[in-house]
């Protein structure tokens, strides 16, 4: 099973590749707001959820597809850690 650090690295790489092409990796910090900061729109958020579900074998409930759970890499790490337990 992947550690949380490895998972966050994979999620960060996915977001950079998919939605921020050409952006230096250090512009995306653990607390950068992704949804409320205008980086992920609704379709991008759904693509992120599909990525999380496929890559890590987790299932997100409908209410978790929300900026409360997915707004930053730190939030995503917390959610994934809770799912893996």
């Amino acid at each position: 099973m992947a550690t949380t650090d490895e998972m966050v690295r994979a999620v960060k790489a996915f977001i950079l590749d998919e939605f921020l092409p050409g952006e230096p990796a250090d512009s995306l910090a653990g607390d950068t707001p992704l949804i409320s900061g205008g980086i992920l729109d609704s379709i991008a958020t759904l693509k992120l959820v599909m990525f999380l579900e496929e890559k890590f074998g987790v299932v997100l409930a409908a209410h978790e597809v929300d900026k409360q759970y997915l707004d930053t890499l730190d939030d995503i790490a917390t959610l994934l850690a809770a799912k893996q337990r």
């Binding site: 707001p33 205008g38 729109d41």
Partner: peptide
């Protein structure tokens, strides 16, 4: 300025559908 910085800047001043 980085892309992330510009998106955040825009999101603080405009509705999200305008970013």
């Amino acid at each position: 300025p980085s892309l992330v910085e510009m998106k955040r800047f825009a999101a603080e001043r405009l509705p999200l559908y305008m970013v």
